[in-house]
Write a protein that binds this DNA or RNA. Structure first.
Lengths: 123, 123
DNA sequence: CATCTTGTTCAATAGATATTGAACTAAGGC
DNA sequence: GCCTTAGTTCAATATCTATTGAACAAGATG
């Protein structure tokens, strides 16, 4: 973990709510929730949402609030939800947010282009 | 209901999260959660949190997001949580938020001055 | 090692949000 | 009627947040 992440007990509700109270970041969470069974996502897979620079900014916000974990993988950054930490800290919160977030339009379109990328990569 | 409130199905998660992602407003929710068994609160009882003008602003934000109901009572405004609507729309969400919000320092101090006001009023 | 990919940094700008104070309205109580 | 209480409106300002582009860094790949 080369990037700074808050400890579980340092995660506060005001920070988490502020982090999630933004359309771009909520869409990121929606995408992550859909991919979390697997291995999370890499920043580049979220390029549909906004610019590269801006993604760096928003992912950092989520990381600093303790919502996601970001770990370097070569030149990439793998982003995963901090499910366990959030469940422990705010039971029921994340699930209720995810339930609505996965259905956001921006998430839908982003996931679709992700899937078609996978297809062409597999061909 | 003289003031505009969104219908239950117009309440969206992004709006609710944005409304709650602010320390003052989260404190308001914490106070309301503590008084909701009774009859909610009146704006003036939240004066400890910030200025009168600013309260009008924040309460309006919460109302517009569908988080609270505000109804005129003479010259006062009674504010209540829209518990049922939020539970229906985002099951589990409000409870998990409240569980943490009631413990915020600003809520603690505001509730204490409320209680001492009650005492002097009762004397 | 040259280059490509992936993401970061920094400084600038744009845009949104919060905060303030002064003037105002509307209801209630004397 | 007049004063008080409770909250609103408006315009100004302050502050904070998001967005952009150019230049950069570090790992991967041939």
């Amino acid at each position: 973990m080369s990037l700074p992440h808050p400890e579980t007990d340092q995660i506060t509700l005001p920070n988490v709510l502020a982090a999630l109270g933004d359309d771009t970041r909520l869409a990121i969470i929606g995408c992550l929730a859909r991919c979390d069974q697997l291995n999370g996502l890499v920043c580049g897979q979220l390029n549909g949402l906004t610019s590269k620079t801006n993604l760096t900014y928003h992912v950092a916000k989520l990381r600093e609030a303790g919502v996601v974990n970001v770990r370097p993988e070569g030149t990439k950054r793998r982003v995963t939800l901090r499910r366990d930490d959030l469940d422990q800290r705010f039971p029921g919160f994340l699930d209720s947010v995810i339930a609505s977030a996965v259905d956001l339009p921006a998430v839908e379109t982003t996931m679709q282009s992700l899937l078609s990328d996978d297809e062409s990569a597999a061909s």
